[in-house]
Simulated assay, not measured.
Amino acid sequence: MTTAAADEFEAHRARLFGLAYRMLGSAAEAEDTVQDAYLRFSGADRAGIEHPAAWLAKTVTRLCLNRLTSARARREQYVGAWLPEPVITSDGTLGPVESAEQRDAVSLAMLVLLERLTPTERAVYVLREAFAYGHREIAEALDLSEANCRQLYRRAERRLAVEQGRFEASPQRREELVTSFLSAARDGDLAGLEKLLAADVTWWSDGGGKVTAARRPIEGREKVVRFLVGAFQGFAAGMTFTVAEINGAPGLLAWAGDTLASAVAFECRDGEVTDVRAVLNPDKLDFVRRQLGRG
């Protein structure tokens, strides 16, 4: 590949990574997919590529569709709850996350919802919602008819049944909730935790069978409070915590010395914490470690 072609690819790399990550829910697989696209781009006849951005987006999308088919089978065998790999978004890795809609689009909650879709529905929805592709552009990328793409998009919307207003609170208010949560959990402040947690709060832990973690969701304020008090009296007692922007919203990084032990994402609504997703699987924390220069 010529230097000019390599530079052209690099100009698109961040956007391609954002597309692949939203499609796959895995930062590691997204990186591999982008690298595969790079190799294909380097070996392609440049004269036959009229619009490199469109060519690359189509290539990455189709590579992701291939990966999603095998990923479904692997996730059916996954030990415990499966969660997407977290990403620190304050450095622009997934593009701007300034509006509520942008934050929502990269949240762990949304990535979990996207698992409800077929691979093709997911591709149509991501290209439309996250990258503002028109249905004609999507049809060209997926080699489908425009009418079929519209139908797939409507079906995806129905299957997601996305609730509105997940991020109605300001980033400052959400960070206050996270820091108050951490303080109450550390102090074993049951009353403080109960005030912060919604009655139907749910806690998910993804250990992937690699580390100890709850294999089923913990549901309800009382059960989550008991779990947190026990956790902070036990294995989390010696850990340090830092606040970080995880997938578009303030979250917590838990450290055992210099080792990143967990990334915790919070979903808040009406001034309460409604969902907490804790990624403990060390394989899924590798990308965040590298983002922080500790990989």
Rank of each mutant, 00 (worst) to 15 (best):
A53W: 06
P52Y: 09
L65A: 03
L56D: 02
A44E: 14
A54F: 10
L65N: 04
V87M: 08
L39P: 13
E76C: 01
L83V: 07
A57D: 02
I88E: 08
V79D: 14
E50G: 15
I88Y: 07
A47I: 01
N66P: 00
G80A: 08
T69K: 13
G80T: 10
Y78E: 08
A47V: 06
P84D: 04
A73Q: 14
H51I: 08
L83K: 10
A57E: 05
P52W: 11
R62M: 08
W82C: 07
S70D: 07
P86T: 02
C64F: 02
S42W: 11
F41C: 10
A54T: 02
T59L: 13
A81K: 12
T61Q: 03
S70W: 06
L65C: 03
R72S: 09
A44Q: 12
L56P: 03
D45E: 11
P84W: 09
G43H: 10
S70G: 06
D91T: 09
R40K: 15
D45M: 00
W82A: 11
K58L: 01
R74Y: 01
A54M: 09
L83P: 04
D36L: 14
G48C: 07
E85W: 03
G80N: 11
R74V: 07
A54N: 08
R67Q: 12
V60M: 08
L65M: 13
Q77G: 05
A57S: 06
D91M: 07
W55N: 08
V87A: 07
E76R: 15
G48V: 06
S70A: 12
A53R: 15
G48D: 10
Y78W: 14
L39Y: 15
A57C: 03
A37T: 14
L63T: 02
S90Y: 02
C64M: 04
A47C: 00
R46Q: 15
P86K: 09
D36M: 14
